[in-house]
């Protein structure tokens, strides 16, 4: 526990010094919240909808940090620590290099949760946001999406041969998902062909799940997204466990 705490504190500090995550996981979601809030001020999601466009977008915006941490942060830090032989140095201590992995996952979970709280408070204070669905099912969906996105990141970071390739794959996953999955640009205003493309991305499915949960909608359409999230998480974790490279 002493090791975990010291490592977590130090690695978190290092991450703050890097600034990227503060920008992409903490500032960006709040900015998007404000923009969507101002653009669609109090308007219903569609004519006759029982919820506002903003309320509909909440579930999407709170995945921005998950996406940044899971698909960008984790692969980069893991491949870098392997490339820099930091994991190798852990192998000649009483501590398992896996602990460093746990610490990194914890850090990105902290960023995600901090972002969720900030986005929620921004919505509540400035745009009268209220979670219509049950808090519990929302949080359940939220952590499932986190698990699924993080497992993608661990897979990429764990098996990419070097940090350059990991960075390229991470960019290839992160930017399309950030823009086209509905996390920033609302899915509902995309033209249908773009929506079809978006549906292919796991994060789009995760966002559908979160929207349904946050709006408290009837949940007959969520089986597919739920299964996609679950399968992604299980498959990526299994492949990582089998092929993760410490060195």
């Amino acid at each position: 526990m002493k090791t975990f705490k010291t490592l977590l504190r130090t690695e978190l500090l290092l991450s703050f010094r890097g600034l990227d995550m503060l920008l992409f996981a903490i500032c960006m979601p709040v900015v998007v919240t404000v923009i969507i809030g101002l653009l669609f001020d109090g308007r219903p999601a569609y004519s006759g909808a029982s919820y506002t466009f903003f309320e509909q977008s909440f579930g999407a915006i709170c995945t921005i940090a998950i996406c940044a941490g899971g698909v960008m942060g984790l692969p980069l830090v893991l491949s870098e620590y392997r490339g820099r032989k930091i994991l190798k140095r852990f192998q000649v201590t009483p501590v398992s290099p896996a602990l460093l992995l746990v610490v990194q996952v914890t850090i990105y979970a902290i960023y995600s949760i901090a972002s969720l709280i900030l986005v929620y408070l921004t919505g509540k204070l400035f745009f009268k946001y209220q979670l219509q669905g049950s808090v519990l099912s929302f949080l359940g969906a939220y952590f499932l999406v986190m698990l699924s996105m993080f497992s993608i990141g661990i897979l990429v970071g764990g098996i990419a041969p070097n940090s350059k390739i990991a960075g390229a794959i991470a960019s290839l996953l992160y930017f399309p998902m950030l823009i086209f999955s509905g996390a920033t640009l609302p899915y509902e205003i995309m033209p249908p062909f773009l929506q079809k493309f978006a549906d292919l991305m796991p994060l789009t499915q995760g966002i559908k799940l979160l929207k349904t949960a946050s709006l408290g909608l009837q949940s007959d359409n969520i089986l597919a997204p739920f299964l996609i999230m679950l399968i992604t998480a299980v498959a990526c974790t299994a492949v990582s466990l089998r092929f993760f490279k410490w060195e």
Partner: peptide, 21 residues
């Protein structure tokens, strides 16, 4: 080969290492 995290300070690297034992 010398390996350490980018942007880590001497005291931090020592503290982390100490926490292993």
């Amino acid at each position: 080969e010398i390996s350490y995290q980018d942007k880590i300070k001497v005291s931090e690297l020592c503290q982390v290492t100490s926490s292993f034992y």
